[in-house]
Design a protein around this nucleic acid. Structure first.
Length: 861
RNA sequence: GGGCGGUUAGCUCAGCUGGUCAGAGCGCCUGCCUUACAAGCAGGAGGUCGCUGGUUCGAGCCCAGCACCGCCCACCA
């Protein structure tokens, strides 16, 4: 930049009195993208590089607060480590989100008066791909608005060709290793999605149903046995009646038979430990086809399985003419009516219990027996448990590891097939002629046994099956690519707790099984942001807040800062105030920089080896502390304090004190150099949190040859403290605050310069002059003191210009405060128990405090 | 039914291994257009740290019990 251009630049800056994020953000993002900084070459190995695989956002969505928080955290980490000199990659991409996307597209079809069935599979998929084209790009643009420095140039999608190959390969290998098999088994059937779903996609809700008592006559005519149920309609599929083997009441029934009302089937009475004698009537109707527990009982006793409820949630032909075609609820009423008619209802009562609902469609789950593909998890879980136990993977906060371990230790088989169209179709082929099954990455041409044609399984995989491969499938696995070597394992996965099981656990298992290494060293589980009123943020509740709206209003830096500041290890309510705090901070930084840049103009290029002014030494010491605190907080994933530390340094040290202390010294070569240095450092340190404002300011202070701030690397320096300067300036600050407070209370305007004399130790030389400047005192008079103000090390004597009445009142209040405090300390120190038991330094500290207060009291007279 | 979090100023939240830990931001009150920022600056008021016991010389901080609030897991019809 030549001198003329720079002068024009400065003139322009002079007029920009507020930071205007909207005016600079798109431009800066474009520069970053063009620079290629976000797209590192895959060199070296993962131990020296830094990488994070983003939790891939669904192509269905728009950015919400969860993404904003999640993204702000990751980008802070990524930018911090990039500037720390590591080769850094934030692996980016989107998720096809099988069931969620399919539902969205289906909804759209319904609104157009058609349906997926009408369209047919092929046309439906075509439509969904074009949906992906349309909406997949939206979320990418939104991440850019946040300033996220993802590797957009190497974007992945979980249904890209290479990724799909990896998915198929994993499926086939797991099948070959005996982990995956096909079976008729009880599944959670979601009538809304017309698909099986996994246990993790089921949520329990409380419901009040009616518990009916129904009499089943005994086959030999000798009485009846009464069973209790909330689902009378399922009795049509009953296979047995079960009682507890130790239940004296029913012992003589075991081995006999009951007649199933309405159907007439003979049901054996069996004994099983599962049955609780003290619940209901103590006799349980066993329905292996429609209840998970009964299914297990049925397997134990080899009972037949009847199905009376279909996949559409209606009664099937097997339910009998009277009920076939009815919905479950209609059938329930009809069954109860029929029982009543037959005089077999023995009672009913309201009963509150938890009932499974689909997390996907919101409909009540219908447990059914279905032919599905299952994955056995127990063996895969073992090494993944070990990895957390021995610390190769660490959860932050740590308490989540217990949650993870608990789940992993009683992990159950995973139903991986879904009766959907959008997703990874199972690489399974059947020969209808000879019933041969082929599981292979490539479709075999013909049946190897009978040369018949093959038919591919209609089902697709659970969307989380492909997500589980994310950290390595994105890097080119199964090829041993340079990218895989350079960035796997990643350093951390940043996520909300709701997907610890769905995603995190499965990534650990798959990473260990297929790459032989854990996919990340750390799992940072962040807060869930709730609406301001404590409800969950959701579009349907109308409690959602759109991060883009917040970015429009306050700027991306503000939103990022707010997210970090709000974040916590517990859930938090959304507070605009934190965003606004971030907005003020960005503006403050902008203006402080303006002051410095315009103040030093084109001077200030030459830095003195070591400044001598005490306030210059002070700010360098504080800067060093800040740098180290920031690094510690980031290493500890303590983001609220990353934000707070930044705020405190910029506001509390740099602006409130340092800049105020040096006003009037501009032009001093040492000062100009120090200001410039401190500003440069501050921009570098703040950049990971507030990339835009810092990048915008950087161009005014960068050296020749330095590029974008985002690409600046900066070695960590040793902690360099100047205790002496800190003590000095701290005295000046405390004294200034005491004086300002006194002015306020005795109504002496802040602008009025006061004649005063320092009667205290520690203000020799520069420090006294500094105090005089900042507190607006005319020092040096030798008149009679008309008032005294307690300051560190003694008192300040005020020589004139004071309302004596107001001052006396203030002194009175001050004296009372001191007396009370001294009283308390004396009592404490005359307590032998305290003096003898407390550690010496503590006692010493209390003694010193007492002495100080006594001196202050004495000085006040 | 089990487990995990939470309960600190009017509001949203910090308070690490018990001893300047009673804090921040917002809001409120007062005063200032002081050579960056009035969407700013300076100063101030506000809390018996959910309740009850206990441990300790000393407890928001540790222990026990209780009361609410939230979340997760769970196959009692």
């Amino acid at each position: 930049m030549n001198a003329m251009a720079q002068a024009a630049d400065l003139d322009e800056l002079r007029e920009r009195k507020r930071f205007d994020p909207g005016a600079v953000e798109p431009l800066l993002m474009r520069r970053w993208l063009e620079s290629g900084l976000f797209h590192p070459q895959p060199e070296g190995d993962a131990s020296e590089n830094y990488s994070i695989a983003i939790p891939p956002p669904n192509i269905t969505g728009a950015l919400h607060m969860g993404h904003a928080l999640n993204g702000a955290i990751q980008d802070t980490l990524i930018r911090f480590h990039r500037m720390g000199g590591r080769r850094t990659r934030w692996i980016f991409g989107t998720d096809h989100a099988s069931i969620a996307t399919q539902r969205q597209v289906e909804k759209e079809l319904v609104s157009l008066g058609t349906s997926r069935e009408e369209l047919g599979r092929e046309a439906f998929l075509e439509r969904t791909w074009s949906w992906r084209e349309r909406y997949g790009a939206t979320i990418v643009e939104q991440y850019k608005r946040l300033g996220a420095s993802c590797d957009y140039a190497d974007e992945r999608f979980t249904m890209d060709g290479a990724y799909a190959d990896a998915v198929a390969r994993v499926f086939v290998e797991l099948y070959d290793r005996g982990y995956i098999h096909r079976d008729h088994y009880m599944v959670n059937w979601d009538p809304g999605s017309r698909s099986a779903i996994s246990d993790l996609e089921v949520e329990e809700r409380e419901a009040t149903d009616t518990l009916y008592r129904i009499a089943y006559p005994l086959a030999d005519g000798a009485g009846e046995v009464v069973v209790a149920t909330v689902r009378p309609e399922t009795m049509l599929a009953d296979s047995a009646v079960a009682v507890n083997p130790d239940d004296e009441r029913y012992r003589q029934l075991v081995g006999r038979e009951a007649i199933l009302p309405l159907v007439g089937r003979r049901l054996p009475v069996i004994a099983d430990d599962y049955v609780k004698a003290d619940f209901g009537s103590g006799a349980l109707k066993v329905t292996p086809g429609h209840d998970p527990n009964d299914f297990e009982i049925g397997r134990r006793h080899s009972l037949p399985q009847h199905s009376v409820i279909g996949e559409d949630g209606r009664m099937t032909a097997e339910a009998g003419e009277a009920f076939a075609g009815l919905t479950v609820l209609e059938a329930r009423a009809a069954v109860v009516a029929a029982l009543e008619r037959d005089g077999l209802l023995r009672g009913s009562e309201p009963y509150t219990h938890s009932v499974p609902y689909s997390h996907r469609s919101g409909e009540r789950i219908e447990p059914l027996i279905s032919l599905q593909w299952f994955m056995r998890m127990d063996e895969l879980a073992k090494p993944a448990v070990d990895a957390v136990r021995d610390g190769r993977v660490q959860f932050h906060p740590q308490r989540w590891s217990a949650v993870y371990l608990d789940w992993m230790e009683k992990i159950r088989p995973w139903c991986v097939s879904r009766q959907l169209w959008w997703g990874h179709r199972l690489p399974v082929y059947y020969c209808d002629a000879c019933e041969e099954t082929y599981v292979a990455r490539e479709r075999p041409a013909r049946c190897g046994a009978c040369d018949g044609p093959l038919r591919q399984d209609e089902d697709v995989l659970d969307t989380w099956f492909s997500s589980a491969l994310w950290p390595f499938a994105t890097l080119g696995w199964p090829e041993r690519t340079a990218a895989l070597r350079a960035f796997y394992p990643t350093d951390v996965v940043v996520t909300a707790r709701e997907i610890i099981f769905l995603w995190v656990a499965r990534m650990i298992m798959m990473g260990l099984e297929f790459v032989g290494e854990v996919p990340f060293a750390d799992v940072y589980v962040h807060a869930v942001i709730q609406a301001a009123d404590g409800r969950r943020m959701s579009k349907s509740l109308g409690t959602g807040i759109d991060p883009l709206v917040e970015i429009e209003r306050s700027g991306a830096d503000a939103v990022r800062f707010g997210m970090l500041a709000m974040s916590s290890t517990q859930d938090v309510r959304y507070s605009v105030e934190k965003i606004e705090q971030g907005e003020r901070l960005a503006n403050k930084l902008f203006n402080a920089a303006r002051f410095v840049i315009l103040g030093i103009g084109e001077r200030g290029g030459v830095a003195a080896a070591r400044p001598t002014a005490v306030e210059d030494r002070w700010i360098l010491s504080r800067l060093s502390r800040f740098e180290h605190e920031l690094a510690e907080r980031i290493a500890a994933y303590d983001f609220p304090r990353v934000a707070l530390a930044l705020y405190d340094f910029v506001y509390g040290e740099l602006c409130d004190w340092y800049i105020e202390l040096v006003k009037g010294r501009l032009g001093d070569a040492d000062l100009d150099a120090t200001l410039r240095h401190v500003l440069r450092e501050t921009l570098m340190l703040a950049h990971p949190v507030m990339p835009f404002v810092t990048e915008e300011l950087w161009r005014y202070v960068r050296e020749d040859g330095e590029g974008l701030l985002a690409g600046v690397t900066r070695a960590r320096s040793e902690l360099a403290l100047d205790e002496e300067a800190e003590a000095s300036v701290s005295r000046v600050i405390v004294a200034t605050q005491a004086i300002r407070n006194w002015r306020e209370q005795v109504a002496v305007k802040p602008g009025v310069s006061l004649a005063a004399r320092i009667e205290a130790v520690g203000y020799e030389g520069d420090d006294g002059a500094l105090l005089g400047r900042i507190a607006r005192l005319q020092l040096g008079g030798d008149g009679e003191a008309v008032a005294q103000i307690a300051i560190p090390g003694g008192t300040l004597a005020i020589l004139d210009g004071v309302d004596l009445g107001a001052h006396a009142q203030r002194q009175q209040r001050e004296r009372a405060r001191l007396v009370a405090e001294i009283e308390r300390l004396r009592a404490k120190l005359s307590n032998d128990a305290f003096v003898n038991n407390a550690p010496a330094p503590v006692v010493e500290r209390e003694r010193a405090k007492l002495a100080r207060l006594e001196a202050e009291l004495a000085d006040l007279g």
